[in-house]
């Protein structure tokens, strides 16, 4: 643990073996990403003839040229995902923090009953099908971009994270003195508490944003117009349309179907384009996720 202690022989052996195992596991975690990036820069014919490889015979930028030749669809998908992620995260974070704040107040007598009401649906519910019918037939959200935002707006778990954080880290005297100074609950929340709980808002905000960015399922369920596909679903669709076309081609023997088939490498280039921002941001946001888990594991 501390580097000042002298290492025993057992520790030294353990160190060597551990490093070997950890290096192996880390390589396994990283390898698919490297394969994706190399694959996207490989010549398509090389892939079809030799398969994917870490050391391709022939490099090429054709996959990226292909995607950006008609960039409208990719740009549309990016726009949808950016809109959904920013607007969704902003609304969700607002609802989450104000709810968490209200539930943290000891003077709020109904707080525990409301907390139970918020928790119960995580325990028991109607399941996917009644929810889907609610979304499509009652709320009429089919093919609406709001169908990508609304389902993730309220998470009881996140509300409880905020509530517990306020309970454990904000001293009660602060509320008292705010009250004496004549601040109402909204002002106390906005001007005093909110600046104090940035660690938890940053973490919860990133949880929510990552969920929106990576979502493909809601597009799959609700969206029919392809210009409203989210980025991940656009990628998913590209993969599966080419899989489906390959099967069709195999069955019908009709080679002319090939015209619209995205090449193997184009799929990987698209995967790089869809994942790039996450990987770029990852080193900066990683610590907030670590903190989130630690906050979550300490119950207030």
């Amino acid at each position: 643990m501390s580097s000042a202690t002298k290492y025993t022989r057992g520790h030294a052996t353990f160190n060597v073996i551990s490093k070997a195992i950890l290096a192996g596991f880390a390589t396994a975690c990283l390898l698919p990403f490297i394969l994706m990036i190399i694959g996207s820069f490989t010549d398509n014919t090389t892939v079809l003839v030799n398969g994917y490889s870490l050391f391709p015979e022939k490099w090429s930028l054709a996959a990226y040229e292909l995607i950006f030749k008609y960039p409208k669809q990719v740009i549309d998908a990016y726009k949808v995902t950016i809109f959904v992620t920013t607007v969704g995260t902003a609304i969700a974070l607002t609802i989450t923090t104000i709810s968490g704040y209200a539930l943290s107040r000891p003077t709020f007598r109904s707080r525990n009953r409301i907390a139970l009401y918020l928790y119960f649906p995580s325990l028991f519910g109607g399941g996917l099908i009644p929810w889907y019918i609610m979304m499509t037939q009652v709320l009429k959200l089919s093919d609406s971009i709001w169908a990508l935002i609304i389902p993730s707006l309220v998470s009881t778990y996140n509300i409880f994270l905020v509530r517990n954080f306020i309970r454990t880290s904000v001293p009660l005297e602060l509320f008292e003195s705010a009250k004496i100074d004549g601040a109402g609950e909204l002002r106390t929340f906005g001007q005093i508490i909110l600046p104090l709980i940035t660690p938890v808002t940053a973490t919860v905000g990133l949880f929510i944003a990552l969920g929106y960015w990576n979502d493909w399922f809601l597009s799959n369920l609700f969206i029919t117009t392809s210009s409203k596909y989210s980025l991940q679903y656009y990628l998913y669709n590209m993969l599966n349309s080419s899989k489906a076309l390959q099967e069709l081609k195999a069955i019908s023997g009709d080679i002319s179907i090939e015209i619209d088939l995205p090449s193997e490498t184009a799929k990987l280039a698209m995967a790089v384009v869809a994942t790039g921002p996450i990987i770029m941001l990852y080193p900066f946001v990683q610590r907030y996720f670590v903190r989130g888990l630690v906050i979550g594991s300490v119950k207030g």
């Binding site: 950890l22 290096a23 596991f25 880390a26 975690c29 990283l30 698919p32 990403f33 394969l35 994706m36 694959g39 892939v47 079809l48 398969g51 994917y52 490889s53 870490l54 990552l210 960015w213 990576n214 979502d215 493909w216 991940q232 679903y233 990628l235 998913y236 993969l239 193997e264 799929k267 990987l268 995967a271 869809a274 994942t275 996450i278 990987i279 990852y282 080193p283 990683q286 996720f289």
Partner: peptide
């Protein structure tokens, strides 16, 4: 090591499907 093994948590399942397909498909899988 910690940074690398933490990375897969951040990517979408769609990408995981892509990875699996690249590794294991019959004709071109690694």
């Amino acid at each position: 090591t910690q940074t690398i093994i933490f990375l897969p948590h951040f990517v979408s399942m769609v990408l995981v499907g892509v990875f699996a397909y690249n590794l294991m498909n019959y004709e071109t899988g690694l």
